[in-house]
Computed example of a mutant assay.
Amino acid sequence: MAERYSSFRKGGRLWLWQRITAAFLIVVLAFHFFLLHFVHHADEVTFLMSANRMETWSYYSLMVLFLVTATFHGVNGVYNALINVGLSGTKRQVVKGVLVVASLLLLVQGFRTANAWAGIDLLPIL
């Protein structure tokens, strides 16, 4: 019988967080689909409508949490998939570093975009 192999360590928290973020993403994606395909049809959505939604703290917070969760879930999944196919040694460390940098860049740009849509200026010009 084939052995089960997983890059997640037994008793590790990353396995659990991968499942928690998956469940959260399913719920948020269902909300998104419902809001933008049943409440408002895609052809009715405008930039102004999106900006107005982002100005409410509940929607803004949900979208920022969605950004962080999706980034973690995606990058963690890709990294562990690569480990499962045999990535090791120096290549593993390089890929890990690239994924961390890519994640940080994605998060920074995502926060900048969310803040711009919400009208939040964290660095006001004096």
Rank of each mutant, 00 (worst) to 15 (best):
A2W: 08
E3Q: 11
R4K: 10
Y5E: 09
S7Y: 07
F8Q: 03
G11S: 04
R13V: 15
L14M: 09
L14R: 12
W15G: 12
W17D: 01
R19N: 13
F24P: 04
L25F: 00
V28Q: 04
A30N: 00
L35R: 12
L35G: 04
L36D: 15
H37Y: 14
F38N: 07
V39W: 15
V45M: 09
T46C: 03
F47A: 14
F47V: 10
F47T: 10
L48N: 07
L48I: 15
M49C: 06
M49E: 08
A51W: 07
M54T: 03
M54H: 11
E55I: 06
T56P: 06
W57F: 15
W57I: 15
L62N: 01
V68D: 00
A70H: 10
T71L: 04
G77P: 03
V78W: 04
Y79A: 07
L82V: 01
I83S: 14
G89Q: 01
G89F: 02
T90C: 02
K91F: 09
R92V: 07
K96L: 06
L104M: 12
L106A: 05
L107S: 02
L107M: 04
V108C: 06
Q109K: 12
Q109N: 07
G110A: 02
F111A: 04
F111K: 01
T113Q: 06
W117K: 15
L122M: 05
L126Y: 07
L126N: 13
